[in-house]
Design a protein around this nucleic acid. Structure first.
Length: 640
RNA sequence: GCUGAAGUAGCUCAGAGGUAGAGCAACUGAUUCGUAAUCAGUAGGUCGGGGGUUCAACUCCCCCCUUCAGCCCCA
């Protein structure tokens, strides 16, 4: 072994060190302050502990809490800390696994009863205490056999089960944290002292290894930060998310509701919500006509034979409502619109000159979702997809996918979403069609993305049963990701339904089909919009755009004249004629999040003007009717 | 579907083995008002539903329904 090794830094600089030097030592050499902030090192692309020994020439990179990798290690170590605290307080509990997640970490424990809030607080307190002790995470490597013996002795059945799945020759690493030993690949923080702010958030049940047939474990979710400020920021975010919850705002703004008498997951659109929906739909239709789509309407139910042909009864039946028997035939509520659009296609002989044919429909579908999965408008059992099927030739496929990517993003931008994340989902376990077709389809989707310089991630096995897909996720105003658009390649239905077109060669050919929804489901999209805007819809979407507020009954007549004029101009306006003080009426209009309030009294009537108040920003001053109209029209135009 | 928690007036919530309470909303009356709550009065509930224990159940027990947090799944 050489005495000296060369370490290369991300900026290309190189420096010589003693063999066996640790990342921590290197970092301290750079700057002690810098070293304190670094949580984990990446040596030759592999994440390692800060006290790892580097024995050869290497490239090094450090990760602080600001990088994804740094956070991951930080939260993973926090999970270990929590497990240690739980083991100290509840020695009978068996430990399982505890990874980091997007926001924080969890650890699953095998325990008969759930953890109570008081217990959670006690665990949190113990974690604080253990963190202050600056316990080191000590890595130790051993053979699988040794590890098995060790966890058997410790009576940790879940660890043994995990070990059993590991290759016999692999080196197993364990980490010791005070009195707690855990099977873990690592890496970890140097010591628990780096964990400053700790909050255990909630408990829940979770199946061992996510398998419904396995034991239900007790999960504790938590989050930690290197400083109190970040924790405060995160807790504020949670608070803000709670405030924006579409279920809460849906009630407060009278947008929608559910009724026990109707059934789970079946929503009622109240006039305010229905107004927003109808604006979304009008906008959607206009965009679709402009993009050369044909709009169609189809029934809500169809015969069993139809769903047999489509493959839904074989591959999707557990998500379908059960059959309705009529005149000796079984009918099913539609979970998707595709077979109906295909039947429209097949209603006459098609020529290649007609292609691409784009059928679109705001089609209401019904899916039997597990009751525990239902969640406000975000997950319902009856919903309307902004669906379309593009039937085209193989040569047209690429261009159509490209157009769709563009179409989707331009539409989502109009709704105030600027940031996108794209995923390419491949063949799932349950699927139709052979692997070769799948490969070809995945390649063409990939081509479309690459050609348009769209960055994407691959979601292995995430495709629909009939084909691979591209999903577009948006980032909302709280930086949360939501999947809206799905562009699904489908080479199976055309086959199953024996779709054809006559080509230039006068021969019958099988067309290709793309199934897509841009907003996803109108219900879900609305829920996301409510939260994105915190209920403060931009003027173009606001169910009521203006509230005219007469100062007293003496000005009702003048107010009504303005109200009528606005209505004639196509503005969604209401007038508060009630016998209340102006402050009261303003308060109610503000709470209803109505963008504009036009207040009229003696001064306005005398000068034929209106006093304009904007929701959230207060009194804007006095305007003539035309001026006020110009302001509101401007906002509608801008979609702000 | 599974695990856990919850369900009291239209809404937000208090209470409790002896047959329910507040604020807001609603209704009535007075007030005619200048940028986020005028005053007074009235009405409103088989305490999610069903069964059981008890002299007595909103409260204790069982079943069901719904909601919430997750798991699983997903538009």
């Amino acid at each position: 072994m050489a005495d000296k090794i060369v370490i290369r830094f991300p900026d290309g600089a190189e420096k010589e060190f003693e063999t066996g030097v640790s990342p921590l030592q290197i970092a301290e050499g750079i700057n002690p302050q810098f070293a304190i902030r670094q949580l984990v090192a990446e040596v030759n692309g592999k994440l390692v502990d800060m006290n790892y020994h580097i024995n050869q020439n290497s490239e090094i990179m450090f990760h602080s809490f600001n990088s994804e990798q740094g956070k991951e290690v930080y939260w993973h170590s926090s999970a270990h800390l929590m497990a240690q605290a739980v083991r100290q307080l509840f020695p009978e509990v068996k430990v399982t696994i505890g990874p980091s997640i997007e926001n924080g970490f969890y650890y699953d424990f095998d325990r008969e009863q759930s953890f109570t809030d008081e217990e959670l607080l006690a665990i949190e307190e113990r974690m604080h205490k253990l963190a202050k002790e600056k316990l080191p995470f000590l890595r130790q490597e051993l053979s699988k056999k040794e590890a098995m013996a060790m966890f058997k002795k410790m009576n940790e059945p879940y660890k043994i089960e995990l070990l059993e799945d590991i290759d016999d020759n692999e080196v197993i690493s364990i980490y010791t944290l005070g009195d707690f030993v855990d099977l873990c690949r690592g890496p970890h923080l140097e010591h628990t002292g780096k964990i400053k702010a700790i909050k255990l958030l909630k408990t829940s049940g979770a199946y061992w290894r996510g398998d419904v047939s396995k034991k239900m474990l007790k999960r504790i979710y938590g989050i930690t930060y290197p400083n109190k400020k970040d924790m405060k920021k995160y807790l504020l975010f949670l608070e803000e998310a709670r405030k924006r919850d579409h279920r809460k705002l849906g009630k407060e703004l009278d947008l929608f509701s559910f009724s026990d008498d109707i059934g789970q997951g079946l929503c009622l659109w109240h006039p305010n919500g229905a107004m927003v929906r109808s604006i979304i739909e009008d906008y959607w239709k206009k965009k679709h006509y402009a993009a050369d789509y044909k709009i169609v309407y189809t029934p809500h139910i169809g015969k069993a034979e139809l769903w047999q042909t489509s493959g839904h009864l074989d591959f999707y039946s557990e998500s379908m409502y059960s059959a309705i028997e009529v005149d000796g035939s079984d009918f099913y509520l539609k979970p998707m619109n595709c077979p109906f659009h295909i039947e429209i296609y097949k209603s006459t002989k098609r020529s290649y000159r007609e292609l691409p044919l784009k059928y679109s429909e705001l089609g209401t579908v019904y899916r039997y979702e597990p009751s525990g999965a239902l969640n406000g408008l975000k997950r319902v059992r009856g919903f309307t997809q902004d669906d379309a099927h593009i039937i085209c030739t193989e040569e047209q496929l690429l261009e159509e996918v490209e157009k769709l990517l563009d179409f989707s993003m331009s539409m989502l931008q109009d709704f105030g979403f600027e940031e996108f994340r794209v995923k390419l989902a491949t063949m799932p376990d349950k699927s139709v069609g052979d692997a070769k077709d799948w490969d070809k389809a995945i390649k063409s989707l990939q081509n479309a993305l690459e050609k348009n310089n769209i960055k994407f991630e691959v979601d292995e096995g995430g495709g629909a049963f009939y084909g691979p897909k591209i999903d577009i996720h948006i980032k909302d105003s709280l930086n949360r990701l939501w999947q809206l658009t799905t562009i699904q390649f489908d080479f199976n239905l055309a086959e199953r339904f024996k779709m054809e077109y006559i080509g230039a060669d006068n021969q019958a050919h099988r067309p290709f089909m793309i199934h897509r929804a841009l907003l996803g489901s109108i219900e879900r999209f609305f829920g996301i919009l409510i939260e994105h805007y915190a209920g403060n819809f931009p003027v173009w979407l606001a169910p009521v755009q203006v509230m005219v507020i007469p100062l007293s009954e003496n000005y009702n007549h003048y107010a009504e004249r303005k109200y009528t004029k606005l209505r004639e101009q196509g503005i969604r306006v209401e007038c508060d004629f009630r016998n209340e003080k102006v402050g009261y009426k303003i308060r109610e209009a503000e709470m209803s999040k109505i963008p504009f309030m036009y207040i009229v009294g003696a001064r306005e009537e005398d000068t034929n003007t209106i006093a304009v108040r904007r929701h959230g920003s207060g009194d804007l001053g006095t305007f003539t009717f035309d001026e006020a109209l110009k302001v509101i029209r401007g906002e509608i135009q801008e979609r702000t």
